[in-house]
């Protein structure tokens, strides 16, 4: 397995607490501590309301913890300015959401390219990125749909475009919030295979919040949250880890 970074632990959560509300306070996360190894495929499972989406948003630098901190290869998110955080998300993180969230105004390949537009690639870089977007769409099996409006694609196709988009800037970590939540079993299987392929080909660290046991069981590590606490943290032995089918 190729690894993207030199640091062993790509993410470290230290004493994460999240409280919502100001008058009526609801503590959603109660001091979580864990580390994610570079190149690891982690699933976060738990009942709804267990705090797994909140955790993912904090790991993805979309939300800030009330207490505690997140270190990315030793660098504290909390010390970055808003613009630096935006740049950081653009370059190091890829997001895949349950409702795929493509921009309906753009075609499949344009959606994939948007993260490169945000960071402002120019000149021959742009050509290179266009080719990369095409390759990624080919990898997710959508070569024939490159120039389709995103609204003309099926749910599974849209989710695959979203995966290609999350990969375009070659992120260190791919974060998924119920990425197969509204897909059928067969498509879910295909998406899982894709994740595993990405994990193995690019050495991307994957952190997926999921309800789906099939996905969870096939990942390297399962963190189970119950009521905002880590209930179990199981790692598979290296030799039993699934290979790409």
């Amino acid at each position: 397995m190729a690894e993207k970074t030199n640091c062993k632990y790509v993410l470290k959560a230290e004493g994460l607490v999240k409280v919502y509300g100001t008058t009526v306070k609801t503590e959603v996360l109660h001091g979580l501590n864990f580390s994610v190894k570079s190149g690891e495929f982690t699933s976060i499972i738990g009942y709804s309301g267990s705090g797994k989406s909140t955790l993912l948003n904090i790991l993805g630098a979309l939300d800030v913890p009330t207490e505690g901190r997140i270190l990315f290869c030793g660098e504290d998110y909390g010390k970055m300015k808003p613009d630096e955080l935006a740049d950081f998300r653009n370059k190091n993180l890829g997001f895949i959401f349950q409702f795929h969230h493509l921009l309906p105004e753009f075609t499949a390949i344009e959606n994939v390219l948007i993260p490169t537009w945000i960071s402002g690639v120019s000149g021959h870089q742009r050509e290179k990125m266009n080719r990369r977007a095409e390759e990624l769409l080919e990898m997710v099996g959508l070569k024939a749909f490159i120039h389709n409006k995103s609204t003309d694609l099926s749910g599974g196709q849209q989710q695959r475009v979203a995966i290609a988009r999350a990969l375009i800037n070659d992120p260190t970590i791919l974060l998924g919030d119920e990425p197969t939540g509204n897909l059928d079993t067969e498509t879910t299987d295909q998406i899982y295979d894709l994740f595993r392929k990405i994990n193995q080909t690019y050495g991307t660290t994957l952190i997926m919040v999921t309800h789906n046991d099939q996905i969870a069981k096939r990942s390297d590590r399962i963190i189970e949250l119950i009521d905002g606490r880590i209930h179990s943290d199981r790692e598979k032995a290296e030799e039993t880890r699934a290979d790409v089918g």
């Binding site: 950081f88 653009n90 997001f95 969230h101 945000i118 960071s119």
Partner: peptide, 16 residues
Amino acid sequence: SKQIGILKAMGTKDRQ
């Protein structure tokens, strides 16, 4: 708002 949210998540700066 959905598009803006997604653009922000992907690293679009507020001023953009």
